[in-house]
Amino acid sequence: SLRDTIRHTPRFGFGRIATEAEIAKWDIDVRPDGKGLPAGEGDAAKGKAIYALKCIACHGATGEEVPGVKLPAPALVSDTSAKSRPKTIGNYWPYATTLFDYMRRTMPYNLPGSLTDNEVYSLTAYLLSANKIIKPETVMNAQTLPRIVMPARKLFVTDDRKGGPEIK
């Protein structure tokens, strides 16, 4: 076997207990049940302004695919029909919390980690609204965001293949 070949597992005593402050600093993930969402809030109008300032350069004026234009970043806005293209937040993202989580850790691409929590709530509101998932005036915060039911949610199934001869 290629596994660990030690017969007994002692506690080795290497490493140290992490402080709560250390954990809080890095523990930025957000789950669909809302766990991890910070205080603060935002709306689509504010989000639109931030988008114009910080996102347009890569994702285009509206976030939509423009025929013949090759942007350095993927389209963010289309419609909510499962058959439509491109695949974006509106028709391919099963959870809205993922949007908050991803943007906060990664966007804008060239300045990751530079957005405030309120900015991320606003951008989330803006993109959900542009994708026709929430009404333009809906405020996004730790309570409202996890409650959104994304159109694509029902399409996602967990892989149930287990090896063996079946091609699935």
Partner: peptide, 30 residues
């Protein structure tokens, strides 16, 4: 971070998932 559920991060939803007939298959690991 150990948890009692997945996080449905962007890389396991918007990416690394794929159409299987009218569904989208996620959590294909092997």
């Amino acid at each position: 971070e150990l948890s009692d559920q997945p996080y449905w991060t962007r890389e396991e939803t918007s990416k690394y998932t794929y159409p299987v007939h009218n569904k989208i298959r996620m959590f294909s690991f092997e």
